[in-house]
Amino acid sequence: MRSLSFENQQRLLIGLRYALLILIAMIFIFPIVFMVVSSLKPDMQLLRDSGSLRAFLPVGDISLDNYADAFERVPMLQFFFNSVFTTVVSVAAALWLNSMAAFSFAFLQWRGKALVLSLIIATFIVPFEVIAIPLLMVVNSLPWLGPGGIEIGWLNSYHVQIIPFIADSLGIFLFYQYFRDLPDELVEAARIDGASIWQIYTRIIMPIAGPILATVAILKFLGMWNAYIWPLMTIRSEELRPIMVGLQYFFQLNTAWGEIMAYLSVVTIPVLLFYLALQRAFIESIATSGIKG
């Protein structure tokens, strides 16, 4: 039996590796292909095709009708704006606030710091569903300055969708972990040069925090973009609803599957774009996590 040469063995290994990678990639890509292809088909055809390979092929009666119908059924642009607005504001505020909190834990000396940090990390284990009702009670009794003066209760507003989610224990922890591993010399040199605490934060630490900013931004973005339970509990007006709640509009007595797929295709685009924009920094953050400075 003739054995393979080293070169051929390498080629075979590379071929096998690519085959495996393609297989894994297909597992992730196929649902998206199914979603996009199904969004182009009428309901009956979509359902009939779902049991065969045709489900992944743009064949049969193909059109953009589902998109037109979905836009007609749901005020999609309004929902889209609401989600973009609450998400962007939340992400920006969360990056700012959580990084500052982590900066404090990592670089400032104050009494009880270790205890507070432990408490914040301990909140990881509390799922949102557990605090949802107490949180509802809290926001319902908080004051807010509205057009009619001071109002009690935050329900049915943009700020009730944003403010409770700015401070985020995971974000603080991730920033803290990243800051803690930075070389001491960076901060000490800045202090010797007379930099203030604010200058150290803004000019020394944050400019080199790109990877962790991307990671926290992506995680926060996903959490806010997919917000569902909280808006259900707190939002009454259609004008303030986020895009994920809009998905429920399609589940009528006769479910509009094609429109659901069209809606989901539109909803997924910003998530993909946001991830692709920050992909490099995100991967870098994961690749370097745990490496000591």
Partner: peptide, 21 residues
Amino acid sequence: LEEFPQESYNSSIVAAALAGD
């Protein structure tokens, strides 16, 4: 009129009842 999606309507009512709203 305020409209809610059917699938999540009951949750919205229960939350509103809790909030006295």
